[in-house]
Design a protein around this nucleic acid. Structure first.
Length: 278
DNA sequence: AAGGTCTCCTGAGGGC
DNA sequence: TGCCCTCAGGAGACCT
């Protein structure tokens, strides 16, 4: 479940269900999700066995579970990754990739497309060095609003591209970028440098609001790929004003929402509320 | 610098 | 039924 609210739903579930029990065994059913562990999948499994998860943390879309060794299990869900907690012996999911056996239940990494993955981060308990370059997300204490506003206003890039750049602000993906821009009445191609400070502040406020609202609804899911650790879907899809709404009337002005190609995917916006630059 | 395109994968769904 | 096309909540490499 790609964006911040969905990943946070997962983090909370992991915090409740996988801490404080030794990992009895690990089974890697597909090599690809552990590709960044250079020592190989057998070494990955061997190293995890016997350890214990002692926390569940997140920055943006990255999750990590600090271990009692001082290392951490890092996870990125990519486009289709899931972390599921299941009773031991439950039928394997079709796309089950890695299984962690914890007493009478299992933590399962299930991922259809395998753009995501797991890795062991050396001394990564506090902040895995692999993701030290990722910017703080809008929900953490380290988020520096003034610095982000300044960074955006210094750039000639389009504002949507900036929202999606994880080194500017992390956790925002295609859905919440489009929703925030719609709320701020901004077209995604407007250059950051052409936006006033107050406008950027308002936009970032919408980013925080829309993700907080989505989190309160359990995240956004259109289908069974986006679920919490118990396999349940969130409900925020009912509250979307722009994303996925092509042809439906804008809830502010009634103009049909438009879809355009952007970065090999789509952007949704109201052509009347969100005027393109020049 | 900025922004386009392609790639990594496995589907689902529509058109014919 | 099948085939071919497009699309998908990510992200990084490569090219201009």
């Amino acid at each position: 479940m790609p964006e911040l609210p969905e990943v946070e739903v997962v983090r909370r579930g992991l915090e409740r269900h996988v801490l404080g029990q030794p990992i009895a065994s690990v089974e890697v059913l597909h090599e690809r999700p552990v590709r960044s562990h250079v020592a190989g999948s057998a070494a990955f499994a061997e190293e995890m066995a016997g350890r214990q998860f002692v926390g569940a943390r997140r920055r943006g879309k990255y999750l990590w579970l600090p271990l009692d060794s001082g290392d951490a299990l890092m996870a990125h869900l990519g486009m289709s990754g899931q972390m599921l907690v299941q009773p031991a012996g439950q039928t394997d999911e079709r796309h089950l990739r890695v299984r962690f056996v914890l007493g009478d239940h299992e933590l399962r990494f299930v991922d259809q497309r395998m753009f995501g993955g797991l890795s062991i981060s050396r001394d990564g308990a506090e902040l895995p060095p692999e993701i030290a370059h990722i910017a703080p997300d809008p929900m953490e204490a380290a988020f520096d609003l003034d610095a982000v506003v300044a960074r955006i206003r210094r750039s000639q890039s389009g504002i949507k591209r900036l929202l999606l750049t994880q080194t500017v602000v992390s956790g925002v993906g295609n859905i919440y970028a489009d929703e925030s821009l719609w709320r701020a009445r901004l077209h995604g191609e407007r250059a950051g440098s052409r936006l006033g400070r107050a406008v950027v502040l308002e936009l970032l406020g919408h980013v925080q609001d829309v993700m907080a609202e989505a989190l309160a609804q359990g995240g956004t899911s259109f289908d069974s790929l986006y679920v919490n650790v118990n396999g349940q879907s969130g409900y925020f899809d009912r509250s979307l004003d722009a994303y996925g709404q092509e042809g439906r009337p804008c809830s502010r002005c009634g103009t049909p929402i438009r879809r355009v190609a952007f970065m090999n995917r789509s952007s949704y916006f109201c052509p009347r509320c969100q005027r393109p630059p020049r």
